[in-house]
């Protein structure tokens, strides 16, 4: 086991656990206002202090983890569910018009940064967590399509695929039974990296008001609320930021660790 994987995995698991536990328990009710106790610094009762309404920040961070992780998870799943079949199809039809259409379509989607997609969707349907998921999800599709196509193309030249073709298997069956399992490692590593990027994107969208809406707590929303109060209560801005950084850092380290673990060639090349 490598250090990156252990440290990154531990950080990521900590926040996933916090998110899961928040379904059944938080130290305080995250919506309960308690004005006399507002702006408290971290202390024995409120471990991470309280905000301008006297709400417990630790509880809000736990529930915010839920929002961040749920949005990122669904968005990346959309990217995988659409992007991977597209990439496999493009590779199976390399050089043909299907490949060309898929790849040009990918280039087009790439020209829309997730923030721009979110702006478009919000202009039409209004802000919300679902729209953030769609925006980040759409942005992830070409990422997975490209990486799957790239990896699949080299596999199509290999002997075991030739053997499967000689045996009379269809391109779709070869893609499903032989190509997909062989690109899975790559997809796991990329999935971890995209997951961390999705957490950052969700935070950004919530911060500018295009993501999760109140009363659902989200880390980006907490930062937006803290912005005007940063001079009198800096901890309001610091804590959600540190939560985002630790989660993203954990996922990135985990991605690096997984890459080393799943792709031994890379480990040899690196050392």
């Amino acid at each position: 086991m490598n250090r990156n994987l252990i440290l990154g995995g531990a950080l990521a698991c900590f926040f996933v656990l916090a998110a899961l536990v928040s379904f059944v328990w938080t130290p305080f009710d995250y919506t309960a206002m308690n004005i006399p106790e507002k702006f408290q610094r971290p202390n024995a009762v409120h471990w991470l202090g309280t905000d301008h309404f006297g709400r417990d920040i630790f509880s809000m961070i736990m529930v915010g983890a839920r929002t961040s992780i749920a949005v990122a998870l669904v968005a990346v799943s959309i990217g995988i569910a659409i992007g991977v079949p597209l990439g496999l199809t493009a590779a199976a039809r390399k050089g043909g018009w299907i490949d060309e259409i898929i790849m040009r379509g990918n280039d087009l989607v790439f020209a829309f940064p997730s923030l721009v997609i979110a702006i478009l969707i919000t202009a039409v349907f209004g802000p919300g967590a679902i729209n953030a998921i769609i925006a980040i999800g759409i942005f992830n599709v070409p990422v997975f399509a490209r990486i799957t196509r790239g990896a699949a193309l080299s596999l199509w030249e290999r002997e075991f695929i030739m053997a499967a073709r000689v045996a009379g298997k269809s391109a779709a069956r070869i893609s499903w039974e032989h190509i997909l399992p062989n690109v899975m490692n790559l997809l796991i590593v990329q999935g971890t990296i995209q997951f961390s990027l999705a957490i950052l994107a969700e935070a950004g969208l919530s911060y500018i008001g295009l993501g999760a809406q109140p009363p659902i707590p989200s880390w980006g929303r907490m930062l937006a609320d803290a912005q005007t109060l940063v001079a009198i209560a800096p901890h309001l801005a610091m804590i959600p930021g540190i939560a985002i950084i630790l989660t993203v850092l954990g996922l990135n380290l985990m991605g690096d660790g997984l890459r080393d673990l799943l792709d031994p060639r890379l480990r040899v090349a690196r050392t």
Binding site: S196, L223, G241, I244, I245, L246, V248
Partner: peptide, 11 residues
């Protein structure tokens, strides 16, 4: 890579 730019801006 892990720092959100808007948070960094606030800091």
């Amino acid at each position: 890579v892990a720092v959100p730019n808007f948070w960094f801006a606030m800091m």
